[in-house]
Computed example of a mutant assay.
Amino acid sequence: MPRKPVARDAVLDAFESLLIEVGERAATLDAVARKAGVSKGGLLYHFPNKEALIAVLLDRLEGLAKADADAMASASEGAAAYFIRSSVWADTPLDRVIVAATRLAEVAHEETRRRFAAIQQRWLDEIAADVGPGLARAVLYMGDGLYFNAMLSVGPAPEGGAAADVEELLAALERLRR
């Protein structure tokens, strides 16, 4: 399979960064080209409009989320524990594309919302297969809360940091399983 052109990847990475940094409205084609270090014509060669950029960004989101759900499904510790452990903001490619796509969802981009719903349902299904449907949503909310708080945390982390929070949530999960 031929490798995607470097300029195309640079443009998509620039679009993702701009969404994170300044939001959907400021992530114009001109701003994306400037940040990617390509001409606007070079950008348009790969992405004829902003909707094409969004479509490929959402494909990136879907691919990374699928890989994550596959890892969750095969995790030796179980899907629920995997989900909680992996719910700490780590500036991974998945973290970055989630935040970028969230900026699209904020402006009611329907395809983004549809894809997020499908991804969340896959995660929920994997967790439910591990802990049952009654506990699955609680685990999902534990992980989402951990992710949100880790992402927004400012200043020094508390003693033990997010690792201590993860261990507390895993202990709570074990109590709930009983």
Rank of each mutant, 00 (worst) to 15 (best):
K50T: 09
Y82A: 01
A101S: 15
T102N: 12
I84L: 08
A80L: 05
A100E: 13
K35G: 01
Q120I: 14
F83C: 12
L140R: 11
V97F: 01
A90C: 06
K66P: 13
F47S: 09
G41Y: 15
G145P: 05
Y82V: 05
K35V: 12
A73I: 03
E62M: 11
Y141T: 14
I119M: 03
F148H: 15
R96D: 01
L152G: 07
A138L: 06
L61D: 00
M151F: 10
L146F: 00
V107W: 09
K66D: 13
E51D: 11
D68S: 14
K66R: 15
A65M: 08
A80V: 06
A117N: 12
W123C: 09
H46S: 06
F83G: 08
V107N: 03
Q120R: 11
R103G: 05
Q121D: 12
E106K: 06
R85L: 04
E110F: 02
I119P: 13
K35Y: 03
D144M: 15
V97G: 10
T102F: 03
A75L: 03
K40R: 15
A69F: 02
R96F: 00
D125I: 12
L53G: 05
G42Y: 02
K35C: 08
I127W: 00
I98K: 09
A33S: 08
G132T: 00
E111R: 02
E110K: 12
A71N: 07
N149S: 12
D91E: 09
F47T: 04
L43F: 01
I54Y: 04
A75F: 15
W123E: 13
L140Y: 06
A117W: 02
Y147R: 01
I127P: 03
Y147F: 06
A129S: 11
V99N: 11
D125S: 14
V88R: 08
Y141E: 12
D70M: 02
W89F: 11
A69I: 00
I84F: 06
S39W: 12
R114Q: 15
